[in-house]
Design a protein around this nucleic acid. Structure first.
Lengths: 214, 214, 214, 214
DNA sequence: GATGAATGAGCCTTCATTCAT
DNA sequence: GATGAATGAAGGCTCATTCAT
């Protein structure tokens, strides 16, 4: 289950799916992601990208008109493909079970989403870093992620609340705690890179107890 | 308790305490912090800083040899003064009570630390953003924050664990959940800036339940 | 007498005569002329030329080694074919008449040369613009046009002068005034594009009177 | 009366009048004009300008945000200062005389305007070259020069026409012939640079006869 | 012959930094 | 100490040109 940490499976899958992206441009995207994650967008030069991708600098600009569009090109597939698939996949696992318990739901989310988060850590780090400073990205993210949660996660939460399985807080708050707690694992990986303990069980327990009804 | 979202009380206190920082340089620091938080370090020019500070560009360089030192100058007081004071203040509130409950501890942390986080949101955002990309800052942060937690928070956690008040997880994990959950409030403020609901009680309840022993 | 403002009859005739120019290259030449006239040589990219010509960028380079040769390819037929034919044609109209009047000569020149100038305005504009900056083009032009005038126009002028029909100025000066006055019509067309008044009679009158003997 | 052909008196006067243009920026303007005239705007690099002006490349951008504004900076004083002064100066010479002859008027125009044209040849060449390709410049020129002629030259022409001194053509046409004929001297200077004969008398005679009433 | 992806030199421009006043 | 004009290294980007298919 351990994947190449620099370029995620999901990313590669997206690029493969987009069969029309020529290989050199895929190398450019992959190199960009890696460098953006390591050094930040602003500290990465197009020359570095070209070198790491093994292409000329001009090639970087064949598909992407400028550096900003390159960033968009790196993040867009994540927002429009990876994220939606992920959340819908979750919904499918869960929506069919009428008597879902809190534990089952949270396990379903955490267990393979956590692997996903670690696997896509680079992309997530770039996304989070740039969202904090780019209004266009922020609103794009809200536009994409908001409805996804609203349509796929919130109905499940409401059902659990109705069944007395879940504390009666607004859905947005519950999502904040669930997602937030998972993301702390990303931060932990940055601050304590040597730590490799499997965190999933602990995280599941923390969220599960934290979200129990009073 | 007065809030100034751009330049925090704590920041001003530090600068005032450092009586040897001349007023123009304080303006430079304040302008830098604000601009770094709004636009990011890399997207902020020294010209913008000079303008907002009401000084000439050359003046920015009197005390700070270069832009990197200016960033250090903005963040260092936070790391070396604000953060230590904050944690030690917490320790004093808590260390004297032999039969501290989990609820009391978490309330003590959340209640005024949350206000602090919001108040110093700008600084924290700059810190978090730059830590993710600057190794020097990251190790500096770990060097400073690690021992502080080790010395002031972890003993308290150990005592609560010994009293059966707290789940038996490693201290670092407990800290991760506590601090992480609080920081989700920062993120929430960025993504949903219009939301102003008081989150403290909910956060306390979530952490408290989440960290209860099985 | 059909006008096509973008690609002149004369130009097409030249290209047709040069039977060895393949059609794609003719399209390239035509597109180049049009774009050079509209935007200037330097502001025209080979990509634009390729697009307008409906060929691939590489095809532009099959016959013309580089962009400069393309410019030469556009202007050369004008200099070596069109211009000589034009002047010789004029000479034939005029040389046979021993008692040519000033009016007859100037009418002969202006009347259909003016149509020619307007028709080939694009080419002339490119030529004039680039001559002012390219020494090779300038000397090439002088080499071609100088003898043509010398051989075909100047003898006629001399005869008229001998007959007391023409003011006794150096031939080069007389040519300057005749050609210059006609070219003002080009400039007028650029500055006042909406104006379409027939200028020929006025121009003939102006030159005719201006060149009368004292 | 011979002036430095590269940087005209008028240009220097304008810059001196604009007392607020610092010397380095004047050097930049002068170098730009010279290079634009010699090589054309597009073939001149900012590096060349900086070198010729004896400044760093960055200095070129202190006053002018980009290369286009530099071109505007070179030409604007000509359009807004030099040209108006020139035409008004002419009007003063001529407007007071109720019984002005055609010869007097044309002499007044040609005699020192011709010197001016040669003196400012560089600027005029840049202006003419760029007007043919830049719509903004063209309309700016029309906006400036049109009314100037309308207000200062045309009334004089009308008076002469009323007095039977001038052929009855539209003012714009008369202006076209007068100005056009003078500008042929510029072209002649480009094509026959070695020729230094004084052309003024011949030009005056040509225009004067050409514009005589029938 | 034709294509168009790829190249990379070189351009315009920005901006952290210096230093004479 | 303060100023801000000047610097020049370095970055983003363009586009004429090449060449494998």
């Amino acid at each position: 289950m351990e994947k190449d940490t620099s370029i995620s499976e999901a990313f590669r899958a997206v690029m493969a799916a987009n069969g029309n992206i020529p290989p050199k441009q895929q190398q450019v995207l992959a190199a960009s992601l890696e460098l953006f994650a390591q050094q930040g967008f602003d500290n990465t030069t197009t020359k570095q990208i070209a070198e790491k991708a093994g292409v000329a600098e001009g090639t970087v600009y064949r598909r992407y008109k400028n550096k900003d569009e390159l960033l968009a090109g790196v993040l867009a597939p994540f927002m429009t493909q990876v994220l939606p698939n992920l959340i819908k996949e979750f919904a499918q696992q869960v929506v069919a079970r009428p008597y879902l318990t809190r534990h089952e739901m949270i396990s379903a989310i955490v267990e393979n989403r956590l692997a996903f988060i670690k696997e896509n850590g680079a992309m997530l780090r770039v996304l989070i870093r740039e969202i904090s400073v780019r209004n266009d990205l922020r609103s794009q993210f809200i536009t994409h992620a908001g409805p996804l949660l609203q349509d796929n996660l919130f109905p499940v939460l409401d059902r659990l609340k109705a069944n007395g399985e879940l504390v009666d807080w607004p859905d947005s708050r519950i999502a904040q705690f669930m997602i937030g707690t998972m993301i702390t694992e990303l931060v932990r990986a940055v601050l304590l890179p040597e730590d490799v303990s499997t965190a999933a069980p602990v995280i599941i327990e923390f969220i599960e107890k934290g979200l129990a009804p009073k």
